[in-house]
Amino acid sequence: MKLDFSILTVVWPALLNGTLVTIALTLSVLAIATPLGILVALGRGARSSALRSGLAAASWVFRGVPPLLILFFAFFALPVVGVKLPPLPSAIIAMSAYMAFYFGEVFRSGLLSVPAGQWRAAEALGLSPVHTLLRIVLPQTLPAALPPYISHATEVLKGTALAAAVAVPELTSAAKQVFVVTYRPFEILIAAAAIYAVLDSALLLLQWRGERWAARRRAVRPR
């Protein structure tokens, strides 16, 4: 068998559309699940034990069941109770829901990595709790939280392929639709893989930039 990538000059619009949907889905999920994850992390350290155990239980459920099942839930089960959403929004909601709890774990260990003295110093200066969180504490979670955050973000990117199961026309399903009519699965799947690799690299670039940012700003550990 000889690979012939000239087929791509014909099918590229379909792959491009799939790529754009994959990017839109990934960015939407990250944009929603990241702040939710921060809230989950804060909630899991909250004073109210009802909130703490409620979130721990939800985290256990959402991280314990297959993501595909949650996607099916949003797309097939919610309409039964009257919540009917198009494929893309339902995929965004489903993926954001379980990613919020994965990010919750990431930010929880990130928050725990910031010494209590940072909160105290900010409080002693009269800074408000919200200001302290956003300006003082969260940026300092970066060294601890960034590597697991990026690896989860990569999971989000790859996980968008699951959305094909609820009729979202993302990259993997676009590739499939193209190769079943052209009978050129090798070329088209390799092209799709290359596109995923480029998108992955963008996330790794983000990690690299973040690590460089954090290098000079590392915490000073008292001896």
Partner: peptide, 10 residues
């Protein structure tokens, strides 16, 4: 403070 508690990212 004893351990300074400067903001290391600033």
């Amino acid at each position: 403070f004893q351990h300074f508690n400067l903001f290391p990212h600033f």
